[in-house]
Amino acid sequence: MKTAGRIYLAFIIFFLYLPIAVMIMMGFNRSPFYQLPFQFTLHWYSVLRDNTQLITAGWNSVFVAVATTIIATTLGTMAAVALSRSTFRGRNVLRILLLPPIAIPWLITGTAMLVLFYWTGIGRGFHAMLIGHVALAIPYVVLVVGTGLQTIQTDLEEAAMSLGSTPLHAFFSVTLPLLYPSIVGAGLFAFAVSLDQFVISYFLATPGFTTLPVQIYSAIRKGFEPDINAISTILLLSSMALFLIFAIFVRPGGKVDKR
């Protein structure tokens, strides 16, 4: 039974990684029509260097992701502190209101943003995407930081305050340093959410301002060459690296006592 289980797991991992491996391999393959047998080349990476559209879109993605990370981490951390450190009526309602950005299909939220932003004159482009990406990232930040806060006992803050510290000072000198790994983890999470976001960006992109996934989607529909594989490989590997760093910072279910 145990051997069967291991063979099955190997099969599942093979299934999950097969297309990714093929995609990466084809970025190093000479044929522009994805023909095998495999002949190694770096040609498509040098083609990519001259593809200003993809490069610009790639930098745009990074700009949006950095801005999203800063705003969402700040706002989300503030909300997480309020939601876990004070008790008031309606707290559960506020918690439930964090779910729609995650739970409603992005197709619906994305088209809804398009309608409102068009209607009110906010328009599309960088600022519109930023509004959308931050809203999608905030719930994850609140979740990660909120989980981090639960592992820090309030008695430390209370001890600091009983020794004459103000609540604000206690927070900044006691809680925040302890919370640091969770906040960094939440920031990485927000960065990855924004970097990989396609649906919202797709509806809010303008011809002058697109992100990498939007550019890749239109390339797939209009015809493309393996330099798409090259940029996809770069994006894929950066996301994976981000996840691994995240996993190190916020050990999910980790047993480390943060005191």
Partner: peptide, 25 residues
Amino acid sequence: VATVALLLPTYAWLTLAIFLPLCAM
């Protein structure tokens, strides 16, 4: 006051990005 100040930015942002768009749609 502190609680409201901490929560307001997040929920204002979500209102602009999620709840108002859904109403408009």
